[in-house]
């Protein structure tokens, strides 16, 4: 099967998942009733399931795309959207919010955690950028080191805040850290859509630069890429995307690791071809995970981060055994 057929197949299957998923849940919704005004199932469809499906799709697409970019930038398939600490910064912001309470922060209402985690994500992103710049140029090694250190630092701060919190707030923090699309704030959905789609467009335009950076920075520069400027743009686009997703859904792990890897097995490393597959594949994968999260222990709901993590463990083992056989993690 040619690579173009494979991409078409991934996109077609993803659109099918996107189309049918809002009708599925604890009870199936008939397509006829969704157009009847005031029908209770129509309300469930339009106000709950559809926004949630769209959110899951955008989150999966954004995280997978950012994972793909970081893996290319660091030339390491084990890099994730959270490697540079944006997620732990967002977690720190959210945990501060839950600890101090919305009224103290004048951020009452369900938008509070969103705003606080966005601020945290922005703070960690700014720190990674400043540290990398301070060392001169925009070295990938320094960026990676700064990201890992800031990741640990904010993770420690999250634990510290959790230690200071009472049991109720601590539970809320822990629940946020698991990642979930339950109780989603639809007000942020349009913004998330804008950020993820704009990010995808930017990454798409930079696909040749990403390919060349994957080939090596010296080679990329000798082929005409302004390496430092390209790295800064990719860092900003990916980090802003991750920050926006994590602020809305919490840190949903492994999706940004698994989806690009699986897509690369079929499509290789040409990012012009890889991006659409990763975007649609990641989006629909998380929609399916969300469906599983809602159905496995229904009517109770499992945080989606648990589902992706349960899939991620075996996936890591598979990657390890595959790399042992081939002698190569790619």
């Amino acid at each position: 099967m040619s690579r173009y057929w494979k991409i078409s197949l991934v996109i077609a299957l993803s659109l099918l998942v996107l189309l049918f998923s809002p009708f599925c849940g604890l009870s199936l919704i008939s397509p006829e009733v969704i157009w009847i005004p005031g029908h209770p199932e129509a309300d469930v469809f339009w106000k709950l399931r559809l926004p949630r499906t769209v959110a899951a799709f955008l989150a999966g697409a954004g995280l997978s795309m950012s994972g793909m970019v970081f893996q290319a930038l660091f030339r390491n398939p084990l890099a994730t959207p959270f490697t540079l600490g944006v997620s732990s910064g967002a977690s720190f912001g959210a945990s501060i919010y839950f600890w101090l309470g919305g009224s103290t922060l004048a951020l009452a209402g369900s938008l509070g955690p969103l705003a606080a985690s966005l601020a945290g994500a922005g703070l960690s992103m700014g720190l990674v950028y400043a540290v990398t710049r301070a060392k001169g140029g925009f070295s990938t090694a320094v960026m990676l080191l700064a990201g890992v250190i800031i990741n640990f630092f904010f993770s420690s701060l999250v634990m510290f805040v959790q230690y200071l919190s009472d049991s109720h707030d601590s539970l809320r923090i822990m629940h946020w850290l698991m990642g979930s699309l339950a109780g989603l704030e639809t007000a942020g959905l349009a913004d998330l859509g804008f950020v993820v789609l704009a990010g995808a467009a930017a990454v798409g335009l930079m696909a040749p630069e990403i390919d060349l950076l994957t080939a090596g920075e010296e080679l990329a520069a000798s082929r005409g890429v302004q390496v430092n400027a390209a790295k800064v743009r990719l860092f900003l686009v990916s980090s802003i995307t991750v920050g926006a997703v994590v602020s809305l859904s919490g840190p949903i792990g492994f999706v940004g690791l698994m989806v690009p890897h699986v897509c690369r097995l079929g499509l290789g490393w040409s990012h012009r071809l890889l991006l659409p597959a990763v975007f649609f594949g990641g989006g629909s994968f998380l929609v399916l995970c969300d469906l599983a999260a809602r159905l496995i222990l229904a009517p109770a709901e499992i945080p989606i981060g648990i589902i992706t993590a349960l899939l991620g463990g075996p996936f890591f083992l598979w990657t390890l055994f595959k790399s042992t056989r081939t002698g190569d993690v790619f």
Binding site: L205, P208, L212, A215, R223, G268
Partner: peptide
């Protein structure tokens, strides 16, 4: 050292980057 994860033809196509307009192929 590092071996780029591309085929020979893909590597050669990347060399046309300085001549190509943005992402136009």
């Amino acid at each position: 050292g590092w071996i780029p994860p591309f085929s020979v033809r893909e590597l050669l196509r990347l060399s046309r980057y300085p001549y190509a307009a943005i992402s136009s192929g």
